[in-house]
Design a protein around this nucleic acid. Structure first.
Lengths: 218, 218
DNA sequence: AACAGAGTTGACCATGCAGTCAAGTTTCTT
DNA sequence: AAGAAACTTGACTGCATGGTCAACTCTGTT
């Protein structure tokens, strides 16, 4: 089945295609993030990507297809971050790494986080199956892990779910409510130092909150 | 200027009017929460409220007027909750009361919280002035208060902003991400006991996290 | 050079939208 | 009783939207 060698040139083509798709996906992510699925218009995405509207439909048949691809891309990134919650590490290392990674994501992928929030707020019409399979499985292994930590006395007893929700909520808040945070920061985006400090604080409060007397802050 | 006594009957009128307005506002809150401003349609709100679309426009001239009223109503409720963060109480009492109140609100006003989240995620086109005035002022007095707590050694040193964001994020998460939480709860809404436990956990982790060794959980 | 297929695009179309309106009904006043 | 004002509502309108299409250009192959 393998073609003789049309590889080189074909790669150039498909590479260009992939690049255009990424351009569109990036623009779509921003527009969907700021207006939700229903509020976003293909015209707005066209303008944001600098392409004519008809071109969008050449790459993505319908608005829903495009939206689906945006959401799937975000979920993939989320999964990568999820891996940083290693089941092998010590409680402190695992949590600190995971929280830090999620804070980084909130800074680098603000729009992705907003699209996710929007999707869930609308009842997850597109990603319900992910929630029920991948996310649920991931969550259950981490719950079991946290329960072992508790049983071994490494951390204080807490319902693991509420702890996970607290981590998700706090870290994602810095992306989803970035506008509010910036307004309360005198209209300026958080500086590198402020991000670092916020990350440290989130780690410190949560770790200490569950009985791990963290080193970090005084 | 006071009319002789058309009060009784006029009140019946304006009472009926207020009731219809509330009916519409409730329906609109749900639809705006689940679809955002752009994604919501007057037709959908009409169906949700059981009124013909033309009737909505009799009470609220435009979609934007209606949305504005919905957002203002939510902000009022938020302000009432904000009052529970008393400047006179002890750190532990003030925080515990405030967190509990916000958790209650997340349960009783899920849709309002979502509308607020949507509005902020879209860059607060309608309520930017509230953020810059009322919210900023409120925040600054609480920051000053928390700084006094720190100076007096009542709590560990933390940047007050990050602490406030943590409280907002965690409590509002239970409203905004209710669908995800319910999916991970086997598709069922949280029970009374679960709400109580979640509230206790949030209080306990945050309070202990800032150095207040709370009584609550073991 | 010439052909094929991928990619581009302005013009177009059917649908659904916010908002209007005029003809009604109901409620209050006198 | 009768008139006025508040309220109700089906039918309508102009416009923006998602999606289509046919004509076009560009790129790689033979």
């Amino acid at each position: 089945m393998a073609q003789a060698r049309p590889a080189e040139k074909t790669d150039t083509r498909s590479e260009a295609r992939a690049e255009t798709e990424r351009l569109i996906l990036d623009a779509a992510e921003r527009v969907f993030a700021e207006h939700g699925f229903g509020g976003a218009t293909m015209q707005a995405i066209a303008v944001a990507s600098g392409l004519p509207k008809a071109n969008l439909h050449y790459y993505f048949a319908t608005k829903e297809t495009l939206y689906r691809r945006v959401v799937e891309r975000i979920f993939t990134i989320w999964l990568e971050a999820a891996d940083s919650f290693e089941t092998s590490a010590s409680p402190e290392a695992a949590l600190r790494r995971y929280i830090t990674r999620k804070m980084d994501l909130s800074r680098s992928h603000r729009y992705g986080s907003k699209v996710w929030a929007n999707e869930v707020m609308q009842g997850a019409p597109i990603i319900q199956d992910y929630l029920e399979t991948t996310l649920r499985d991931w969550t259950e292994t981490r719950i079991a892990l946290i329960e072992r930590w508790i049983a071994s006395g490494a951390i204080r007893p807490v319902e693991p779910r509420w702890l996970l929700y607290m981590i998700w909520a706090t870290t994602q808040h810095y992306a989803d409510f970035a506008h509010q945070i910036e307004t309360l920061n005198g209209g300026r985006a958080l500086s590198d130092a402020q991000w670092q400090d916020a990350t440290d604080t989130v780690c410190a409060v949560i770790l200490r909150g569950i009985g791990l007397d963290a080193g970090g802050r005084a």
